[in-house]
């Protein structure tokens, strides 16, 4: 039980997660991501309400995401989930693209 409760990185398939970039090093908003690209969420710009809401859908810093489709609104893959992120929100999610 004890080892379960430690902080566990959720992006096991991405290897060990980097700690969130402190100074916006190479971060872009989801809006600038193309279909097929993967990235790690770094920060969510918005009030606590928005942060908690996105967290409840599985989007929070440290999580690895893949853009399935980007046409203003975005279809995002998080593990085995697909989420739609509306136009108003894509620019609020900052990510660090994978090489």
């Amino acid at each position: 039980m004890k080892d379960l409760c430690r902080w566990i990185s959720r992006n096991e398939d991405a290897g060990k997660a980097d700690p969130p970039a402190a100074g916006g090093e190479a971060t872009v908003s989801l809006r600038d991501m193309k279909a097929g690209e993967s990235a790690t969420v770094v920060e969510i710009h918005g009030g606590g309400g928005l942060v908690r809401r996105l967290a409840s859908m599985g989007i929070l810093p440290g999580v690895r995401v893949r853009v399935v489709k980007n046409s203003g609104s975005i279809i995002l893959a998080i593990k085995d989930n697909r989420l739609v992120i509306g136009r108003g929100m894509v620019k609020k999610v900052l990510v660090k693209p994978e090489e």
Binding site: L4, C5, I8, R10, E12, P19, R52, A55, L60, P61
Partner: peptide
């Protein structure tokens, strides 16, 4: 943490869940 408490707490919950699910 360089993150707001809501993120850290959500993290804690997911960490617990994901740990349990891994097992």
């Amino acid at each position: 943490f360089g993150d707001t408490p809501e993120v850290v707490i959500a993290d804690g919950r997911y960490g617990f869940i994901s740990g349990a699910c891994q097992e």
